[in-house]
Computed example of a mutant assay.
Amino acid sequence: MSSAPNAGPSPGKVLVVGGCGFLGGHIVNLLLKQHPRTQIAVVDLRTTSNRNSHANVSYHDGDITDLAAVTTLFSQIRPDAVIHTASPHFNAPNHVHDKVNVEGTKNLLKAAQDTGVKAFVYTSSASVILGPETQIVNADEKWPLVTGAAQPEYYTTTKAYAETAVLEANRTPAHFLTCAIRPAGIFGEGDVQLLPKMVTALRKGQNKFQLGDNNNLFDFTYVENVAHGHILAVQALLTSHAMLPTIPLDTEKVDGEAFFITNGQPVYFWDFARAVWHEGGDTLPLSGVWHLQYDFAFAVGALLEWILWALGKTPSLTRQQVRYSTMDKYHNIDKARKRLGYEPLVDLDEGVKRGVRYIVEQEKRESEKKGQ
């Protein structure tokens, strides 16, 4: 599969919030690939990374927690559509998640409503349905959100609150259409959380260990496919906007809806890790892998967290890592396929090759710099 140009309608003038981040940068690049004449504006706290030099892209420094500044930017840019990908790092303090994910999203909604934006697409998270004991097995969008005390990750709670605000804002006013994209396990060139940690584990020799029996299916999603889902959502909202005041059938409706986006290829967790390690140069046979059972690994993770917390350090194994690498977590993307026309552009194997190749090339450049 390859990222052939999309034959869908032009998305008009698009504002990508967080467009200098990992996902946002890929959305900008794919928009240009599929619609080279589209006018794109990027708003980010600092627009220094992942910049695209294309003449149709403009960059604007802006803080989404400042409503007046956001409104001024929207008044200047006058976008037809907004794609909101901005979010703090997963491990940021709780008050930062509140301020950016919840308050910042509400500021963007207000500015969009006040300046005539037609379509607003929010990057949510597949984890908004994940509870502390839940196994996610072929989950669809009917599964309830898990928030507050029932949600172990505060970041995820604020993503769910922001998603709810976005969907509740749909058709207020009547010409303002919104939806949410819920990606699962994003990886690819420039990711800072998934592939780099796995490659680092390989470099440290941690590929010798496996937690659990590797019978748990997990969704990993190549970043260009997530970008594709966002662009399809914008196009679908703009198509619905052009048909106003007609309201689509419930089975076709995109506005006011959430959509899981994955590669549609659930894979056993450690098979994915080994595919990454193989691309990174791993030659260890399966017979050389030590299997650590869940209860033992969980206890070790808890002990390491406690000891290293006391020392002000971060452990290499945590209870969260043990849980994530031994649980089922995969989703049903039929709704996105039927209503958005979504199909992954890049399959899992090709995505792994691209992502790891990017890291290896970075390592090579860093090594050459040190050798100068």
Rank of each mutant, 00 (worst) to 15 (best):
M1T: 11
S3H: 04
N6S: 15
A7R: 04
G8F: 03
S10L: 09
G24T: 11
G25Q: 00
H26L: 04
H26Y: 03
Q34Y: 10
R37A: 14
R37L: 12
I40M: 02
I40A: 01
D44P: 00
R46M: 09
T48M: 07
R51Q: 14
N52L: 09
H60Q: 08
D61M: 03
L67N: 03
A68D: 14
T71A: 13
F74R: 00
P79Y: 04
I83Q: 05
I83V: 15
P88T: 05
H89V: 15
H89F: 13
N101F: 00
G104A: 07
L108A: 02
L108P: 00
L109F: 05
A111E: 06
Q113V: 07
G116D: 09
G116N: 06
V117S: 07
V117G: 08
A119L: 08
I129Q: 05
G131T: 13
G131D: 13
P132D: 14
T134E: 14
I136V: 14
I136D: 01
A139P: 06
E141L: 03
K142S: 15
G148R: 01
K159T: 11
A162N: 04
T164E: 15
L167E: 02
R171N: 10
R171L: 09
G185C: 01
E189I: 02
E189L: 06
G190D: 11
M198Q: 13
Q206D: 14
G212W: 07
G212Q: 07
G212C: 10
G212I: 11
N216F: 03
L217C: 10
D219W: 01
Y222Q: 01
V223C: 10
V223P: 05
E224I: 12
I231K: 00
A233E: 06
L237E: 00
A242V: 04
T246C: 03
P248T: 11
L249Y: 08
F259D: 02
F260K: 00
I261H: 02
I261K: 01
F269V: 06
R274V: 10
D282G: 09
G288V: 05
Y294E: 13
D295G: 07
F296L: 15
V300N: 02
A302S: 14
L303W: 12
L304V: 11
W306Y: 12
S316C: 09
T326F: 00
K329Q: 12
E343K: 06
E343L: 04
P344Y: 09
E350L: 10
R354D: 03
G355W: 04
I359F: 08
V360F: 05
E361G: 06
E366W: 05
K369Y: 11
K369M: 13
K370A: 13
